[in-house]
């Protein structure tokens, strides 16, 4: 069996039919998810304790996430036919209890980053310093105040194993004057902005590491989200 490629992901996603309405939200994350799971994260279905962790905070539109997890052997693509059905583990927001490889249950916005800050602190306290953590948020999700509690504290605590990826499709109702990265930069995060379709650029940005500082990568998507 050949290893699935990026080009195969759309076919996997198409298997998830039904009245799913977050199509734009789903595809906006596809490039970032693929680059992370294909080139960056040290994680496989054995879920070793010192693995890298990926927290999908923006839990809506999870088809791209499920497709990538299937491509990487975490879940069986046969499950996609039942996507969203009562007995299916694959819902419109992912549940870590139901889906192998899913690290957090998400759906309500503004929970992934605070959880990731806790995990970064926990791994540090346990001496599991090799593990890095990525959290994916949407730019609209940054409206939630809980993120700002986490952004400020993570930098003060010097959590340099923590990485945030924000999919910026300009969907925050009131915008982020000066660019959303300013909210992180002022707290001492390292920041980078990359075109979400530029896989090499994403990989390079994800690999960058500044000792003592958490890192932000803004992945710019042109199409405005119409998910709500």
């Amino acid at each position: 069996m050949t290893e699935p490629r990026f080009e195969d992901l759309h076919g996997l996603m198409a298997a998830m039919t039904g009245d799913e309405k977050h199509t734009t939200a789903a595809t906006s994350t596809l490039d970032v998810l693929w680059v992370l799971y294909d080139r960056v994260l040290r994680v496989d279905p054995s879920m070793a304790e010192d693995r890298d962790r990926f927290y999908l905070s923006k839990g809506h539109g999870p088809m791209a996430y499920y497709a990538v997890l299937a491509a990487k052997g975490f879940i069986d693509p046969a499950e996609f036919e039942r996507f969203g059905a009562y007995p299916s583990p694959l819902g419109h927001h992912p549940d870590r209890v139901l889906v192998p490889g899913v690290e957090i249950s998400s759906g309500s916005l503004g929970h992934g980053l605070p959880l990731a800050v806790g995990t970064a602190l926990g791994l540090r306290a346990r001496g599991l310093t090799r593990s890095r953590i990525w959290v994916l948020l949407g730019d609209g999700e940054l409206d939630e105040g809980s993120n700002h509690e986490a952004i400020a504290y993570a930098a003060r605590a010097g959590l340099d194993r923590l990485n945030v990826v924000v999919i910026d499709n300009d969907s925050a109702s009131h915008g982020w004057p000066g660019g959303l990265e300013q909210r992180f930069a002022v707290e001492g995060w390292s920041t980078a902005r990359v075109d979400a379709g530029d896989h090499d650029g994403l990989e390079k940005a994800f690999a960058a590491h500044t000792p003592g500082r958490p890192a932000l990568v803004v992945a710019e998507v042109e199409e405005r989200s119409t998910s709500h």
Binding site: E103, P114, L115, V117, G118, L121, G122, R126, E149, Y153
Partner: peptide, 18 residues
Amino acid sequence: IREQLLIGVAGGMALAGM
């Protein structure tokens, strides 16, 4: 003074085995 973070961090630490 960050109580949302207080519980979020507790959850995240527990996910890391604490």
